[in-house]
Design a binder for these strands. Structure first.
Length: 424
RNA sequence: GGAGAGGUGCCUGAGUGGCCGAAGGGGCUUGACUCGAAAUCAAGUGUGGAGCUUGCUCCACCGAGGGUUCGAAUCCCUCCCUCUCCGCCA
């Protein structure tokens, strides 16, 4: 959520910034509602003040044993007016709030303008796409040939967009997650956390998935409703919801391995083959809670932590800055990491690292205090995939494939595979 | 799932209709004392919001949401959470 005061005082500026990412702010509606809000709030608070004073007077008169009937008569019709005012105020504040919750974050100044992914800017490349002296297979054919990756069985068990792995491929998948967790905890200073895979609506509101993107979520039939997490970002970032952190405890760095569940509504034609776009996939997520002045550096650092995994796995990738039109709802700036997939002969997203500024923190009421006596202020939140495990498995299979359809094991994973060097 | 007890500020703990944004104690901050520390003494110490003459005034918040009342932390209803016991269970 943007700062309501900023919207109130700099409405045109906010509208211009949001226009950069293709969001049309309804300036007229907001300023009309804002005028109404102001008038009614002042009026209502005045009535409340009147009521409080009268009630106090009645109490005092009663204590002295005086006749309170005249005082009661005087406030007789105050109640109705007050109630009407409070109801109107609540109604208008709800309307304003609904609009506010639907407004995306303002892009950082250095984010390139653009409508869609075509305007994303490549900032660096690492590694060389491998050359093969045979016809390359994609991970579906490789998995099929080996017999360790199966989509038909998953369709029987559940439906489309799920997968079944077995044997060494299942182990490789597990090894990847272990390797990522170990690297981030041992080398990058993250604290491993284990969290619920189902969350309540407050948590989703806090990180920005609700109210706008309910269609992308799996909703459980509980009362109140729980939702399967679409990313560990939700439970992990919500660790600091409704808290005030001490300055010396920041930054907080969490790493978390969870399954992620996405209904992928509205992407029916996309990536229907293979493991690229699934309803269920594993991800190792990095989350940082930092002081506002540190968030720009933290994004560079966090992106580097995610890149490090690709480098250690020796997977070629490139880093792109998302343009204003391609960024997620809550992000102020996002780097995507795109790994080389020989099966598709192109780079595909494997990680997304974002700085959210105080956008999530305001929804989360996540704050910190400079010193004992200082006022609490909002933290900044960041997160990034470090990495998407399923897509990393795809990348390893396709980049490490051998002539006969076997798959070599990256060196850093061999300790996790009982020193196995090849899957065949 | 069944039975019972509870949810108050950073912590502890009082408050059962008005003088309560909330006693007392602890903690913390500042000052005094001290060579310094401890002890002692004094003062201060929640969050969010609104308005304007930016320093003041006002509003809201005692798990959440409703209700009763001129007035609710206090009474009523619903929900959530915690604890104890029983049942079931990885």
């Amino acid at each position: 959520m943007l700062d309501p005061k900023l919207i109130r005082n700099e409405l045109d500026y906010v509208a211009a910034q949001l226009a950069r990412r293709g969001f049309k702010l309804d300036v007229a509606a907001i300023s009309t509602l804002e005028d109404q809000r102001k008038a009614i709030q002042v009026e209502t608070q005045q009535l409340q003040n009147e009521r409080n004073k009268s009630s106090k007077a009645i109490g005092q008169a009663k204590a002295k044993g005086e006749d309170v009937q005249p005082l009661l008569d005087a406030v007789a019709n105050l109640g109705g007016k007050l109630k009407a005012g409070e109801e109107r105020l609540e109604q208008i504040q709800n309307q304003l709030n609904e609009i506010l919750l639907g407004i995306p974050n303002i892009p950082q100044a250095d984010v390139p303008d653009g409508r869609d992914e075509n305007s994303n800017v490549e900032v660096r490349r690492w590694g060389e796409p491998p050359r093969f002296d045979f016809t390359v297979k994609d991970h579906v054919d490789l998995g099929d040939g080996l017999g360790y990756l199966n989509f038909d069985t998953a369709v029987k068990i559940t439906g489309s967009r799920f997968s079944v792995m077995s044997g060494p491929v299942a182990r490789l998948h597990r090894a990847l997650a272990q390797f990522m967790l170990d690297t981030h905890t041992r080398e990058h200073g993250y604290t491993e956390v284990y969290v619920p895979y189902a969350v309540n609506s407050d948590s989703l509101l806090g990180t920005g998935q609700l109210p706008k993107f309910e269609a992308d979520l799996f909703k459980l039939n509980t009362d109140p409703a729980y939702y399967l997490i679409p990313t560990a970002e939700v439970p992990v970032t919500n660790i600091v919801r409704d808290t005030i952190q001490n300055a010396e405890d920041l930054p907080l760095r969490f790493v978390c391995h969870t399954p992620c569940f996405r209904s992928e509504a509205g992407s029916y034609g996309k990536d229907t083959r293979g493991m690229i776009r699934q309803h269920q996939f594993d991800k190792v997520e990095l989350v940082q809670i930092v002081k506002p002045q540190d968030s720009l550096d933290a994004l560079e650092q966090l992106t580097g932590h995610a890149e490090r995994i690709l480098q250690l796995l020796e997977l070629p990738y490139r880093t792109v800055t998302l343009c204003t039109g391609d960024m997620g709802f809550s992000a102020a700036k996002t780097y995507d990491l795109e790994v080389w997939l020989p099966g598709q002969n192109k780079y595909r997203e494997i990680s997304s690292c974002s700085n959210f500024g105080d956008f999530q923190a305001r929804r989360l009421k996540a704050r910190w205090r400079e010193s004992e006596t200082a006022k609490p202020q909002l933290v900044h939140t960041l997160n990034g995939s470090g990495l998407a495990v399923g897509r990393t498995l795809v990348a390893v299979m396709e980049n490490y494939q051998q002539a006969g359809g076997a798959i070599a094991i990256p060196k850093v994973l061999q300790p996790y595979m009982g020193e196995l060097t090849i899957i065949e």
